[in-house]
Design a protein around this nucleic acid. Structure first.
Lengths: 291, 291
DNA sequence: TGGTATGATAACTATAAGTTATTATACGGA
DNA sequence: TCCGTATAATAACTTATAGTTATCATACCA
């Protein structure tokens, strides 16, 4: 019992005519005869009554017609669903986005991607409990948005944007008019950082360490907004990606000397077969330029 | 996209192994490989990830697996349904049963048939508006239970039972002790008959006519019970099949001379393909002896 | 009653499903 | 780290079957 046989049977039933069905299906009439006979042989009774001029369904044929139509409809529905996946009008994937990147790189990326692929869904994992790299390695997510480079010989990666890290000072700070600042100039300033575990914290502390300075950490938080507000209030200075803070009242941004950059990119597991939606996202990111 | 391909895909997905699936399906492993490749080719993307030791579903494969399983389940359900029709554990047909036969031949027949084929259903058409013969000719029903013979060259028929028609008299009637009765003896008795359109009425009136007697019809009814009650009350005499009245108070049954018989049988349209359930009924009736 | 339409049948062809033999590769144990 | 095993892919070939053309039998309509 074959899908093709069902299709032939349904067509003959509807047209009540073998020859017409053959024409509609673009095959010869004997092929239809053979197929229907095979089906009837297999079932053990007649489905069609050919004694009259018109081909009519037997009682059993009527029952079988309904079943066959249902199966064919589901077959077509399944094909259409898969075509949607193929056409990227359906699909979803999982992406890990750490808080820092979720705050300012991801929204733009997401919005632009959605404009191109409105039907594709992504599930965002922003949990701070595992790093994005681990989530990708464990295949809990298909791709991760991270600060590059890490030691990622086992993962593919793609750079999205390189952002300069700038010093954030209260506007009325004595250093706020300098064209650039060095870590030496900042050694006595209390600083506001992300909590332990955030990549940006580590990068800043590593820079201080390079200059053999032990900074005074006024406060740690996992909230981007909190950092900005605390800087504005004069609690301390901070370091943030240049574009993450457009215009904030009472906060001045000054580049470091030498310049300090933060590379952000996408990572995924090589060899692992990704959802088409995720491949589309990777390709999209490839062409994406962060504004 | 073929049922067989779906079956292979589902088996491989469940066993996570091409070779094991091939063994289970009793075909060679390359046949499975080819089939899965064909499916993937057609859909335009991979369903299975063979990069690991175990064969794993891709995201699209997971979606397709559900759809494929559903289609296969419905295919099997359809086959099982048709097997039930074949095995006569499912099925139904339509039968015309005129009121007279519905009252005493049919109940026995129906009960015995149901004992042999408890899952088969029959829809009984007992409407007096069309005759059973017409209902069979128009294919409103598959078979009819009728008084034979009629002029039925266009229909197949099968005799079920031949019943003697007896005179029904009140027990205190002067003729109630006769061993048999002739129409001559009954010419002045008021008679109670079925309504116009009932076969038995016509048979009785035809018999009177043969003897050139115009009987006095006291009353006509379409109710079997009414006839019996009216005879018991002495309103008139009547004529009924011998076995239709077992023992009724105040009613005596006396054979006619010469004997008058009523042949009852089943009719159906030749060439017309009947439901298997109906064929089973015809075969059953063939072996049936009316008690 | 003869012509047309239609399904069945027979013989043949083409397609595709399946087979065996073999290769490439990933994984696990020593 | 390397070898042996398990497993999927590939190639070449065979078989099964779906489809074709040609033709016949039959039912219906004018």
């Amino acid at each position: 019992m074959d899908i093709r046989e069902l299709e032939y049977f349904v067509t003959v039933s509807e047209l009540q005519n073998f020859t017409a069905a053959a024409n509609k299906l673009h095959i010869s009439q004997p092929a239809i005869s053979k197929s229907i006979h095979k089906l009837e042989e297999e079932l053990g009774f007649q489905l069609l009554d050919r004694t009259q001029k018109k081909v009519l369904l037997t009682e059993e044929g009527t029952v079988f017609l309904d079943l066959a139509k249902d199966i064919l409809a589901r077959m077509i529905a399944a094909q259409n669903t898969m075509i949607e996946y193929k056409n990227l009008t359906r699909g979803n994937f999982r992406i890990a986005v750490p808080p820092l990147l979720g705050a300012y790189v991801f929204p733009q990326l997401f919005a632009d991607f959605k404009k191109s692929y409105p039907s594709l869904d992504m599930s965002v994992y922003e949990d701070g409990s595992s790093t994005a790299v681990d989530l990708v390695r464990n295949e809990d997510v298909h791709v991760g948005l991270i600060i590059l480079p890490s030691n990622l010989t086992d993962l593919h990666s793609h750079l999205i944007t390189s952002q300069e890290i700038v010093v954030c000072l209260p506007t009325d700070h004595p250093l706020s008019n300098e064209p650039f600042l060095t870590f030496e100039q900042l050694k006595d300033e209390p600083i506001i950082l992300y909590n332990e575990g955030f990549v940006l914290r580590k990068i800043i502390l590593d820079e201080y360490a390079k200059h053999n300075i032990v900074p005074s950490v006024a406060l740690s938080t996992n909230q981007f907004q909190t950092i900005k507000a605390l800087v504005a209030k004069g609690v301390g200075i901070s370091f943030l990606p240049k574009n993450s803070i457009k215009v904030v009242n009472h906060v001045t941004k000054i580049p470091l000397h030498p310049h300090l950059f933060l590379d952000m990119g996408l990572i995924w597991k090589p060899d692992k077969i990704l959802p088409l939606a995720c491949k589309a996202f990777i390709d999209f990111v490839n062409d994406f330029t962060y504004k």
